[in-house]
Amino acid sequence: MSKEKAFEQEFENKIENEIKIEPRDWMPEKYRENLIRQISQHAHSEVVGMLPEANWITRAPSLRRKVALLAKVQDEAGHGLYLYSATETLGARREDTVDDLHEGRAKYSNIFNYPSVTWADIGVIGWLVDGAAIQNQVMLTRTSYGPYSRAMVRICKEESFHQRQGYEIVLHMAKGTPEQKEMAQDALNRWWWPSLMMFGPSDKDSKHSQQSLAWKIKRQGNDELRQEFIDKTVPQAKYAGLTIPDPDLKWNEEKGVHDFGEIDWSEFMNVIKGNGPMNRSRIKARKAAKENGAWVREAATAYHEKKMKRAQQKQSAA
């Protein structure tokens, strides 16, 4: 058996036996690429996802909500950081990964290409968008790559807190004045379908799904995750007295799950292609942050070099 074959065998055995793959282990190049793609996409989603929420910090309607939102957006920046670090364990450079985002080579969660129009959106984003993200991420705590799995354990804890906070905002508004209830319902109407699309196309149409499942990068298919999310969310909407905007949604006694209407994948494909209401603005904001901050990063580097040089001079003089 060639050396390569032996490595591959060992890798397959680990996957088979649920032993995590660690950064120094041999791994197929495609596995590495697939992971870098997925983890960096996830990191970008955290960072781009800061924008629709940060947009509301200065307008949060109470100090308690303001503090909670600040803390939430801070958590997201933190998640972005660990995830970029996880891609670095695979040999990707953070700068390159970020450039891929800015140049449109890398994707981020499509959901953030929709605008957060009212305060109720902050509630619904927490409830549905973080809810859908958790559904995915809980599965990823069992992913085959060690650093990714461990990052997910930590991220999940924080996300479930965010989801509760989001739902609490929605619930409070739904039980509030008629205007507040209307605002909450309107936000649910706008975010429901995009949230379902967060799980990606049906497994039979998904480009990456099968290989990712085989390598145990993903542990459940898109359709299964989506179904679980719907089944969990329907009673929450009901409890809040809100209506999910899907006339075909109904409980299927026989299957023990909810049936739901057809997802408009043409909208999804269009938004992915860059035609969503916020695609341009999100990337523009991230690029501007990078460009406007260039002098700061250069200065920090220059200062660091000067400091090292001075320390050396001091040492050689002594």
């Binding site: 940060a54 942050a289 700061v296």
Partner: peptide, 22 residues
């Protein structure tokens, strides 16, 4: 300081500034 959120020169600086704002 919150106005900077998501627009800082580096992710680490975003976190530091949000922390101070908090």
């Amino acid at each position: 300081l919150s106005e900077w959120c998501g627009h800082g020169p580096k992710l680490e600086q975003d976190i530091a500034l949000i922390n101070i704002a908090l």
